[in-house]
Design a protein around this nucleic acid. Structure first.
Lengths: 188, 188
DNA sequence: GACATGTGAGTAGTCAACCACACTATTGCG
DNA sequence: CGCAATAGTGTGGTTGACTACTCACATGTC
């Protein structure tokens, strides 16, 4: 039965948590863990700050959960890329995963949260744990699905790291020799 | 003539600014632009917060200056490495510069400010300008002194980016397959 | 006397976290 | 079925601590 007009409709807390995790990526993207207020996150999710604090114990846990969510998305994109790879050599699979990742980060918010997570990892223990665990899963997944060597995997993630740096500093939109050097062959 | 005992000795404002730029690297390292207070920076430099604001117009200019200082140090380390290179091939020179850089970041503070600068670059215009300019100089310097190709230079900076990520998340101290994969051959 | 170096004591505003309370759904029971 | 008790969803308003930035004033230097 559909609810009467004008009355409030309640969802489940779990639904709301999902909403928050999705919208908070956009909220944290610009100024990261320290520079983003919990009010901004709540507003982005369309809930009150008070309720945000009922969904997550504190700001640290909230951000760590958002970071975990970002890693999940990346892992999913790896899987999609690997599934669509033309060929089964490590090179072909890694190349396809890189392409899927490049597609994923067309929305730059995710990339920036990734960067901010690295920064917060320095001094926020729960975030550091999330980043380490996220990377661990990413590396092992990439290894298992591609069968690449340590060197190939390292190169793969090094290019990802460079890509992140280039985009956060805005070099991908600059037309100068130094920027072209960094951008060469990068599919952001 | 040495000043009388117990009286205050004044330096020049320029000296103080230098002090601040050096000590502020340590202050900003842990929590970055948004997470570090100007009081902390002043305390690290041994001056009052009020005087800090006479030396720098605002927090943004202060942090941008600190970032510029970090890039200067990196450039110096590149020069030292290049000077000590055994051989003049691009590979040899880049390898030597990488080694000097690895030596420089034995003090992890510099590396972390570098990371935080990337993050702040997303939303703080003056910092973004400092990062772009710093990278531009770094890339062009590395190119001119090594004579490397775009591909070689890109690989060089990609490994630097990976190194930064690994250290900020603490993976260089972890003994697990995924961490070893990322660390392979990295001289942090 | 003129100017530079340097500080204590603010101010107006912001932030994370909390609490009392209102509203909605579900369940138990006669 | 009726209806009260219970549990879950959601918010306005507050608080105490903190933050970037300022100003009047003191001290040292030429």
């Amino acid at each position: 039965m559909s609810p009467a007009r004008g009355t409030r409709v309640l969802g489940t807390a779990e639904d709301r948590r999902e909403d928050v995790l999705s919208t908070a990526i956009g909220a944290f993207a610009a100024r990261g863990y320290f520079g983003t207020t919990t009010v901004e996150v709540a507003k982005a999710a369309g809930i009150s700050q008070a309720y945000l604090y009922r969904l997550f114990p504190d700001k640290e846990a909230l951000f760590a959960a958002v970071v975990g969510r970002c890693f999940d998305r990346i892992r999913e994109s790896f899987a999609a890329g690997a599934a669509a790879a033309t060929g089964s050599s490590p090179e072909a699979v890694l190349w396809a995963m890189g392409g899927a990742y490049a597609e994923l980060i067309r929305d730059e918010h995710l990339l920036m949260v990734q960067m901010h997570a690295q920064c917060a990892a320095v001094s926020v223990s729960e975030v550091r744990r999330a980043v380490q665990q996220g990377y661990a899963r990413l590396v092992e997944y990439a290894r298992s699905v591609s069968g690449g060597t340590d060197e190939q995997l390292q190169e793969f993630f090094a290019r990802g790291a460079l890509c992140t740096e280039v985009v956060t500093m805005g070099a991908h939109a600059i037309d100068a020799p130094w920027a072209r050097t960094l951008n060469t062959g990068l599919r952001h």
